[in-house]
Nucleic acid binder design. Structure first.
Lengths: 210, 210
DNA sequence: ATATCGTTTAACCAATTGGTCAAAATATAA
DNA sequence: TTATATTTTGACCAATTGGTTAAACGATAT
């Protein structure tokens, strides 16, 4: 049972650490709180992960791949370009509904602790078995050449798509205040509607009707 | 000179505190560091602002109005709807080029420390002498009625515009990695181009050509 | 000049925090 | 069973941190 228990403990720690770091960030997180959440002694945290830094890096390494994610795998399928855009958006919004704190966490930490974290992020992308941006660029150019899509810069369009998916989650607290009378329910509906509205909005903008 | 000096000290403190809080967030900021940056004794910080919390609230109160900002005052002018959209975007991007850390700061803190900060944010909007979202809603409806613009939900469009402006700044660290080979210069050009590309993108999507 | 007021400082404090250590408990191997 | 290796714990530590205090300083008014 040793090995099994060990994995169990390590896993318990990572899950607890994820939850606390996601909610409070590196600076706001307390080792004691993580230990409590994992139902273990604080010394045991340091037994498995020697320092707060190391523990954080482990957590970050496990979360990093989720933000820029499986979502883009649709690009490798044989759907049409517009269908792919639609699927990416729907998948992305669904992912973020399950992990609403992920983007703010990644971006906050990425903008403070540089070096080591940036490296992890870079490795994460290098380790992907396909290059989303490259695929996107080629497919877009293809559609432009065929006269289906207006001549638009692939980086601009790519960032537009990502922005329209992620920002409503990052900016939720402020958007709720200014536009939704602080109502959680209204905002959830709004997000749900975006699965339809965002693809429409984007395709409207770039599609050439014949 | 007493009064003048006092104002000067208070101002020095707020400026230093803004810089540190913006860069490190509430949890990461140190009172000692703020004191150093303001070239004063740490005890003097507590003389003017009794606690870290109070100081932070003062800083937040002074920064909050900037995020959702003068930028929207164009809505009160007599420009055309499309010109207004264009101006809002250009102004917003210009503002964020000067205060790139502002959005991430506001949103990070807003998503952690609730209550008091959320109240400040709400007051900030209530104290504006015009209601951007309401104006936007009416003008949009007007354009829809005139047949100039497709039938689109004002909340969706409003969030779209804000997303396309803010997110490239919030997500800069990660976007730089995935799409710009970590080049600061390339990314700056990309942002600069957005002043043209984003208005075009939006208007393309909603405008009805006759 | 001096008493009075607000401002500034150095020294200090208590609480928190990340981290250590030696011993206890538990599992594994002989 | 006994010896050995691994895992878990409670007690402890040094450093940091927000915050306090009493004294010094400086300007102003009388």
């Amino acid at each position: 049972m040793t090995l099994k228990e060990k994995i169990k403990t390590e896993e318990k720690i990572i899950l607890a650490a994820e939850e606390i770091f996601l909610k409070k960030g590196f600076d706001g997180a307390r080792m004691q709180e993580i230990a409590n959440k994992a139902s273990i002694n604080k010394a045991l945290l340091h037994y498995y992960y020697r320092s707060k830094d190391k523990l954080f890096l482990a957590v970050f390494r496990s979360l990093a791949p989720k933000i820029f994610p499986p979502v883009f795998r649709v690009l490798t399928t044989d759907l049409s370009f517009f269908e792919k855009i639609e699927q990416v958006i729907i998948n992305y919004i669904n992912l973020l509904k399950v992990n609403p704190r992920l983007p703010l966490f990644i971006m906050s930490e990425l903008s403070k602790k540089s070096e080591s974290i940036i490296e992890i992020m870079q490795e994460t992308f290098e380790n992907m078995d396909f290059n989303p941006l490259q695929l996107f660029k080629e497919e877009l150019q293809n559609e432009i050449d065929k006269g289906n899509v207006i001549n638009i810069d692939y980086q601009q369009l790519f960032v537009n798509i990502i922005s329209l998916c992620i920002f409503p989650f990052v900016g939720k607290p402020i958007l709720k205040i200014i536009g939704f009378e602080n109502s959680e329910k209204e905002y959830d509906e709004f997000i749900e509607n975006r699965k339809r509205e965002v693809p429409k909005f984007i395709i409207n903008s770039i599609k050439i009707s014949k």
